[in-house]
Design a binder for these strands. Structure first.
Length: 300
DNA sequence: GAGCCGTGGAA
DNA sequence: TTTCCAAGGCT
């Protein structure tokens, strides 16, 4: 642009942190794990629960968990079965087992303190690239890019002008977020949270509320006239009704509700196809979520 | 690296 | 009703 000549057009690809950080101050939902006095452990628990699970469903379970197990050592001292029960119906119950295992590893290898180092976090069970970065950034204030499904969509739209992010390109997306990240660590932390918040509440997958978006004036997707997504799509998930996943869920509900072993006859009484039940029990046993014993099946 | 892993809300 | 999607990670 020429000196002194204001650019009247939108700015595709323009820096978005300067817009998102102030927006977040007024628009952020008051989520309890964002409070200033929340421990890194409490942040870690929230991140496990939030994997593929909506905020509204996590809120009550998170409150219970941190009151009951306020530090890693307390969860590690409890039997895994209690973690699985307290997980209730959050889904993907392996996460409860992994969280219990991570707590044990934190006690044994890190003196009961959640590590602040990316590699140490990645070495913990159930912690992958997203969660490790989220804990480093949100619990410890590290200046690292955090990229989740919301951030991927925001970057794809605002910067690349595409409707959807498409298949993950981890290296590219981390670099893109890094390029937008404010130099100051405190602002970087807010920006990471703000990008996720925008994707969750405004720049949503289905019906984006562009009229309420702080990036509307500089959004590349909007400037291009909202072109439809052309790239490859993820394969559709298998139908849930009648699936092994559904069967696993039914079995886990029975095991959580019982306080001793559940007899095989009670599981048969669920009325499922015997082969389907057998596959579910085998896979649950392989995952460590169900233990076979003489009286039937129980939680670990 | 593709397939798999729960549950519930919204369109 | 069906389908999509949700603060991913493991094998």
């Amino acid at each position: 642009m020429l000196d002194g000549v204001p650019d009247p057009t939108p700015h595709p690809g323009a820096s978005i942190a300067a817009l998102l950080v102030p927006w977040f101050a007024g628009a952020a939902r008051p989520l309890p794990w964002r409070a200033a006095d929340v421990s890194p452990w409490a942040v870690l628990v929230s991140e496990f629960m939030l994997q593929q699970t909506q905020v509204a469903r996590v809120l009550p379970r998170w409150q219970e968990w941190i009151e009951r197990w306020p530090r890693p050592a307390e969860l590690a001292a409890a039997p895994p079965s209690e973690a699985v029960r307290a997980w209730d119906r959050l889904g993907y119950p392996r996460r409860a087992l992994w969280l219990h295992e991570a707590a044990t590893e934190i006690v044994e290898r890190h003196g009961g303190v959640v590590p602040d180092d990316l590699d140490a976090l990645l070495a913990l069970k159930g912690i992958g690239p997203y969660t490790a970065r989220a804990i480093a950034a949100f619990a410890y204030g590290a200046r690292v890019p955090v990229v989740d499904t919301n951030t991927r969509r925001v970057l794809a739209r605002a910067i690349e002008g595409r409707a959807e992010a498409g298949p993950p390109r981890v290296v590219h997306e981390l670099a893109a977020m890094e390029a937008q990240l404010p130099v100051d660590a405190g602002s970087a932390r807010i920006f990471n949270a703000a990008a996720m918040e925008l994707g969750a509440t405004v720049c949503t997958a289905r019906s984006p509320r562009c009229e309420a978006c702080p990036l509307a004036g500089s959004c590349a997707w909007r400037a291009a006239g909202y072109p439809e997504y052309e790239g490859p799509r993820a394969p559709r998930q298998a139908r849930f009704a009648g699936s092994d996943r559904e069967m696993r869920g039914m079995v886990m509900r029975e095991l959580r509700g019982a306080h001793g072993p559940v007899a095989r006859a009670e599981l048969d009484a669920l009325g499922a196809d015997p082969e389907r039940l057998e596959r579910a029990l085998d896979s649950l046993a392989a995952d460590g979520l169900a233990v076979r014993e003489a009286g039937g099946y129980r939680l670990p």
